[in-house]
Amino acid sequence: MTLQTTTDTLPAPSRFSVRTVLQNAGIGRALLALIIFFSVFTEHFLTPNNITNILTQITINLVLAVGMTFVILIGGIDLSVGSVMAFAAVVAGKAITLPGFGPAEAIALAVIAATLTGVLCGLINGAISAYWALPSFIITLGMLNIARGAALQVSDAQTIYSFPYAFEEFGSAMIYGVPVVFLVALVLVFMAWFVLNFTVFGRLLYGIGNNEEAVRLAGQSVRRYKIAAFTICGFTAGIAAVVYMARLNISSPIAGIGFELNAIAAVIIGGTSLSGGRGSVIGTLLGAFIIGVLANGLILIGLSDFMRQMITGVVIIFAVILDHYRAKYAAT
């Protein structure tokens, strides 16, 4: 009475991505609808320059959201990414303006400083919440304050400026109208997608998000994987800091206030479940696009700041309701 296996010829990864595509279909359609709407109702939306603008504008949020996807997949949350980004930017800003280095060395130093700072903060977040089994919400809320305070302390609350010209070049470089910094973000998305779908590490992250106890009883070190997820999130905050610096050519200690919420919104709109275990980084990519297109389009259409804020809120709530129904259909 075994019904099997001749039909089961599709390789598992493509099955996985077929499901991913299905899960993302709703959000993809929503994005398409937004794009069509703004194309019809505004003059400049679908122009090469504006598309370049949108890509530039979503880059930082996308980078942060990629790391956030890892943390949310294991059922955690990281509220500190905005502050950690500012801290990393300030540390890197100090590094890049150190006297006695050539531009190439200074830039390398800055990139290393930013990512190390981010990784360190993420590691602390992960280690504390994993070892004491504490809710990451509150640990990262603490880190939000620590990193912000550290950013102000290190910078003495001053904007750091005058970076090497080459760094600025990198920040505004384009390939066929596509900002290089956005390509960096895309590479991160691809890497995250690969890790989550094709590696033992990714598999176990999904497992932990779904049923931590089952993974633990299967002999896996749940703590280690949790710490790794938060560390990745810190790393992307460091990369976001580099993008910030390259794009604006300054480091501001008050950068990134509220960015964590935008990153979380991108992840959730992208269909990743806030309780963990379900979702994909491709969804996150689409979620970041929705937020970016909305912010851009609503300005082009001439809506007031306050209306804009309200509509963004409505979209977030709508996305979560959508997710609720997705989960329900997945269950039956």
């Binding site: 598999r203 497992g207 779904n210 049923n211 106890e213 089952a214 993974v215």
Partner: peptide
């Protein structure tokens, strides 16, 4: 449900 299986994941996983 609580300890043995990851219900949402594939049988093979």
């Amino acid at each position: 449900k609580d300890e043995g299986l990851i219900l949402d994941m594939p049988i093979s996983a």
